[in-house]
């Protein structure tokens, strides 16, 4: 299956949205500094995505095999019971913005740049979803990310990257020895068709998480036979 590289994603920083997010008076000096940063970021920002459609070659008790590479996760395996395809992906704000942010000494500017890079990553997510929908029409889809749940540990990033060839070469995303992606504002995972939406959060009991999308389901783990997992 061919690999899709999205490297011409349009990115424009919405300065008004930033001002609102940061509770900044639009007439202030600080607002002018933020606007200047946003302007620069819009000029250099190149969010990117790489993904492919991959056929599941085999399924075991708690794993699947794709392109000869074994992804081990009871939850992933269970979620893929009724489908034979997955869409592994890596998305990023792009090295251009990350390198620019590294040059900012001022902590306030660095904080703003961090938010701008998040916006660029969100732009990459939107572009990826649109491309996926247009070209593969997978229908209702769900998402899983290595490292979000203990069952699919972050060390599996390496295998996910292998399925996509060389994301460093393709879109500039590097995997460190601790499985951290650089640029930091990058996202990896798999999308797959599912009639019932799966969200990682429903199996995560962490309290006060700012990124929680749905409530924790205490009994949901039993549906995935996690108690039987070694």
């Amino acid at each position: 299956m061919s690999i899709n590289i999205l490297d011409a994603i349009n990115f424009q920083v919405d300065t008004n949205s930033l001002l609102e997010t940061f509770h900044i008076n639009a007439e202030s000096d600080v607002a002018r500094q933020l606007a200047a940063l946003a302007h620069t970021a819009s000029q250099i920002g190149k969010p990117k995505a790489v993904y492919k459609e991959a056929v599941i070659e085999a399924k075991g008790h708690d794993y699947i095999i794709v392109d000869g590479i074994k992804l081990t996760s009871q939850i992933l395996r269970t979620n893929l019971e009724s489908t034979q395809k997955i869409y592994p992906y890596v998305l990023t704000c792009g090295r251009e913005l990350a390198d620019w942010a590294d040059t900012l000494d001022d902590m306030l500017a660095a904080f703003w740049a961090d938010k701008i890079m998040e916006m660029a990553l969100e732009t990459a997510v939107t572009a990826f979803e649109s491309h996926l929908e247009t070209h593969y029409n997978p229908g209702s889809i769900s998402n899983m990310n290595p490292g979000s749940l203990e069952d699919w540990p972050i060390s599996q990033q390496k295998k996910l990257f292998s399925i996509l060839g060389d994301p460093l070469n393709k879109i500039g995303v590097q995997l460190t020895d601790s499985y951290l992606m650089l640029p930091l504002k990058s996202l990896s995972g798999v999308r797959f068709h599912s009639s019932i939406e799966f969200v990682n959060c429903q199996l995560c009991s962490r309290k006060n998480c700012p990124n929680r999308r749905v409530e924790y389901h205490r009994n949901a783990a039993e549906n995935y036979n996690l108690k039987n997992k070694k």
């Binding site: 900044i24 902590m107 306030l108 904080f111």
Partner: peptide, 8 residues
């Protein structure tokens, strides 16, 4: 952001 602006 307000903390950072004050810190500056």
């Amino acid at each position: 952001p307000e903390v950072l602006i004050a810190a500056r």
